[in-house]
Amino acid sequence: MKKQSLFSLLLATVLFTGCSSSSHAGEPPAPEKDTYTNPVVRNSLPDPTIIRAKDGSFYLYATEDVRNLPILKSSNLVDWTYIGTAFTNNSRPTFEPDGGLWAPDINYINDQYVLYYSMSVWGGEWTCGVGVAVADKPEGPFTDKGKLFRSNEIDVQNSIDPFYIEDGRKKYLFWGSFRGLYAIELSADGLSVKPDAEKKRIAGTAFEGTYIYKKGDDYYLFASIGSCCEGVNSTYQLVVGRSKSLFGPYVDKAGKDMMENGYTVVIGSNERFVGNGHCSEIVQDNAGNDWLLYHGVDRNAPQGRVLLLSQIGWDANGWPYVDGNSPDNQAAIPVFK
């Protein structure tokens, strides 16, 4: 779940002062770095989603602790510049009038940028839902196309956390929270549910924040368990299961089905960072290394959920892992030419 905090009351321009590492006019450029330090952004950016646009830059979107969904830009996944919001007060979605915009998912479909989002009030599990917006450029402006469905319309309680994927030339949306994870086929343009499509349940009641990654012949379902939004008491962890089919069954390392709440932990907590979860898309750098962004709570500055970066490895049996099963304080920087 994606609870907005008091942090969201601050102005975005104040929140992201110092977010970019760019040099000031007239100063020599900063030397290239060999390492980065977590958090890569100290401001609250829950539930990140990213895309590499045609200009080669990465664009990141997050739950609106900055109202109207913040957008940041980077060339290396480490140095991020705040560039605006996906919506304005006048253009933001309205199907849940008092709702917040949570857990966006950015994609490039049919020559346009397509942003799926959840809209909900905290605890409004039957009135929340998933909507979609489009833009010609990754920085927007995004035009809302309205809701795809609400919880009470699709009969899935707490319909949040959308994730889009294409498989076998078909388009699918996955979503859900601690009432189950589900999937449904979308129309050819990705902007509506395919007529007569039937939803499929793929996981039990322990998970939210679906992200599915295909590697070789295997599908990996990344999700989050625990509490997201209790500050230093948050228990969020990033977990995974694996399947030979997009729709499962997904099982953990011990063979337990995720429909029965089986899971393998990828990222847990450590002395510095807790409540770590809800990952972005996996990005591969020019050295062939895989990287993952996600949010967590920094015990040293526990206001909001900060942006963390980790390298993902793959063991001899094909399971993803992060060294130490938790965020590094410092690590080698991704390689992007």
Rank of each mutant, 00 (worst) to 15 (best):
residue 1 M to V: 10
residue 4 Q to K: 09
residue 5 S to V: 02
residue 9 L to H: 13
residue 11 L to F: 15
residue 17 T to H: 13
residue 18 G to M: 01
residue 25 A to V: 12
residue 31 P to Q: 08
residue 36 Y to D: 00
residue 39 P to Y: 12
residue 41 V to Y: 08
residue 41 V to S: 09
residue 42 R to M: 14
residue 42 R to S: 15
residue 48 P to T: 08
residue 50 I to V: 14
residue 51 I to Y: 08
residue 56 G to P: 11
residue 62 A to H: 04
residue 63 T to M: 09
residue 64 E to P: 03
residue 70 P to Q: 05
residue 71 I to E: 03
residue 75 S to H: 14
residue 76 N to C: 01
residue 86 A to D: 00
residue 87 F to I: 09
residue 88 T to H: 03
residue 94 T to S: 08
residue 102 W to M: 01
residue 102 W to A: 04
residue 109 I to Y: 03
residue 113 Y to R: 11
residue 113 Y to D: 10
residue 114 V to F: 09
residue 118 S to Q: 06
residue 124 G to A: 06
residue 126 W to A: 12
residue 129 G to Q: 10
residue 132 V to M: 09
residue 134 V to N: 03
residue 139 E to T: 08
residue 141 P to R: 00
residue 142 F to V: 06
residue 143 T to Y: 06
residue 145 K to Y: 14
residue 147 K to Y: 09
residue 150 R to Q: 14
residue 158 N to S: 10
residue 162 P to F: 05
residue 166 E to F: 05
residue 166 E to T: 04
residue 173 L to I: 15
residue 174 F to S: 09
residue 175 W to P: 10
residue 180 G to N: 08
residue 183 A to K: 06
residue 183 A to W: 11
residue 186 L to T: 07
residue 186 L to V: 11
residue 191 L to E: 14
residue 193 V to Y: 06
residue 195 P to D: 02
residue 195 P to K: 02
residue 199 K to S: 07
residue 201 R to M: 12
residue 204 G to I: 00
residue 209 G to P: 03
residue 211 Y to R: 11
residue 212 I to W: 01
residue 221 L to T: 05
residue 221 L to W: 07
residue 224 S to F: 02
residue 225 I to L: 04
residue 225 I to W: 08
residue 229 C to H: 05
residue 233 N to M: 12
residue 245 S to P: 09
residue 248 G to Y: 00
residue 250 Y to I: 00
residue 251 V to H: 11
residue 253 K to V: 00
residue 254 A to G: 12
residue 265 V to I: 01
residue 268 G to N: 02
residue 269 S to M: 04
residue 269 S to R: 11
residue 272 R to C: 10
residue 275 G to N: 04
residue 277 G to D: 06
residue 286 N to L: 00
residue 294 Y to R: 03
residue 295 H to S: 05
residue 297 V to C: 08
residue 302 P to S: 03
residue 305 R to N: 05
residue 325 N to E: 15
residue 325 N to Q: 15
residue 328 D to G: 09
residue 328 D to I: 13
residue 331 A to M: 09
residue 333 I to N: 04
